[in-house]
Amino acid sequence: MFGWIIKRDLLLAMRRQSDVLTTLFFFIIVVSLFPLSVGPEMNMLRTMAPGVVWVAALLASMLSLGRMFSNDYLDGTLEQMLLSPQSLSLLVLGKALAHWLVTGVPLVLMAPILGIQYDLPAEALYVLTTTLLLGTPVLSLIGSIGAALTLGLRGGGVLVSLLVLPLYIPVLIFGAGAVEANMAGVGFNAHLSLIGAFLLVSLVFAPWATASSLRVSLE
């Protein structure tokens, strides 16, 4: 059941690769714009790198939130999922996981390469990738709540960013903070633990909140 929904969403993503690629290229371009516009001042680039990469990851992940449920809503498959005897929360968790595999994982894989543009040392690149690996699933999970709440609304795309971006702030602070802490020579384990805690909390609560929002949105 859980496997079927992931398989389905991954299959759909394969058939529509342009959707996946636009998100990834958006991330690449936004991250690359900063060194080009700020100039080759190494120290400044190094300081701003974690923040820029994280903000770009937030925006890229949000860009694809609209598609998470809206296509299924329009063709009636979401309706059928709501009528499934299986737990809707579990289905939603599957969809969020598929969303992360399709949009989050490519960002995580690209991050170390993009970090080189900012002259980040090897260890900082490693920390950046680890924080993104822990943090991007949180973005998909929290984002699913916003996507479900704005389902079927006009102008839902803008509304979803207003709803979801404030909720992303804690992850952003600790994600970028971990890399800065590492470059400053201080330990970054506390930051990672906190992002891990966010991940666990959102794994438990986000699917439930999303499932309830979907039931309201489809009524």
Binding site: R8, L11, L12, R15, R16, N71, L74, D75, G76, T77, E79, Q80
Partner: peptide, 9 residues
């Protein structure tokens, strides 16, 4: 009313 099928599958 909605068919509940995915166009791409």
């Amino acid at each position: 009313h909605l068919s509940g099928t995915k166009d791409d599958l």
